[in-house]
């Protein structure tokens, strides 16, 4: 369903060269892929390019989702097509109630797909059900989007949005960062419930920890803007025991020392 070929990208207005340097990745329905990499390897850049954030320039390569050219689509068109990004740093939007935001988003997506919009009562049922699953207190639904939420609450709110929007392909960008073990379990549980034969999931993470709870079918190691190695879930464990530096050394890849510091 997702096919990334030879993707090269750089940040606009910054003269630092390419961050992604020929990335290939293919995700089939029903699969969970983990993309692991040290700091600065291009993980978040990949996530943002998939979601369509401004400020990134794709210099080469292609991204296709169900055959469509994703790079030509506006962010809202991508959402309507069934792409979803769970943000590493969810945005606070004071003045906009979480509930209103979720319903507006869901109806926008339904409308774009030519499906009937959901009424307020139907929406509330769906929302309460999903909120319980991801462990979001009902008062957070009434509050402004992410405003004053703790780190864990923000991440749960991302998973709640995913559960409400029911995307075909979800990309989770470092959803584990800043979570304690209980929150990690709840979030992972929410993601696991969304696993289905029709849905693809890409988990982007620095650590193997999250992958104990969301067990991937495929693991890819992203270093220096390219996937340098792919394997099954055992690759994540191997990476955890060796660290990025040893794995890179085995592969004969030079990595800047500062990118590896945080991996011990």
């Amino acid at each position: 369903m997702l096919k990334i070929e030879n993707l090269h990208a750089r940040i606009e207005d910054i003269d630092e060269g390419e961050i992604l340097k020929g990335l290939d990745l293919e995700v089939q329905p029903g699969e969970v892929h983990a993309v692991m990499g040290p700091n600065g390897s291009g993980k978040s850049t990949l996530a943002y390019i998939l979601a369509g954030r401004d400020g990134y320039e794709v210099t080469e390569g292609s991204v296709r989702f169900e055959g469509e050219d994703v790079l030509e689509m506006e962010p809202e068109e991508r959402a309507a097509a069934g792409l979803f990004l769970a943000f590493q740093y969810p945005i606070e939007i004071p003045g906009v109630a979480n509930m209103y935001f979720l319903r507006t988003a869901l109806n926008a997506v339904l409308r774009a797909r030519g499906e009937p919009e959901i009424d307020a009562a139907g929406f509330m049922r769906r929302l309460r059900e999903q909120a319980e699953i991801v462990g979001i207190r009902s008062d957070l639904l009434k509050r402004d989007v992410n405003a004053g939420f703790s780190g864990g609450e923000k991440k749960r709110n991302e998973i709640l949005q995913m559960a409400v929007l029911q995307p075909k392909l979800a990309v989770l960008d470092e959803t584990d960062s800043g979570l304690d073990i209980d929150a990690l379990r709840t979030v992972a549980d929410g993601v696991n419930r969304l696993r289905s034969p029709e849905r693809g999931i890409v988990v982007i993470t620095h650590y193997q920890r999250l992958l104990e709870y969301i067990v991937p079918d495929h693991v890819h190691v992203l270093v220096g803007g390219r996937i340098v190695r792919s394997g099954d879930k055992t690759l994540a464990q191997e990476l955890e025991s060796k660290g990025y530096s040893e794995l890179m050394a085995e592969l004969g890849i030079a990595v800047p020392a500062d990118a590896l510091e945080a991996t011990a």
């Binding site: 959402a79 988003a105 926008a108």
Partner: peptide
């Protein structure tokens, strides 16, 4: 903030 809303399907 705009990107966040748009990434959830809300038009610009």
């Amino acid at each position: 903030g705009l990107f966040y809303l748009r990434s959830r399907g809300i038009d610009k």
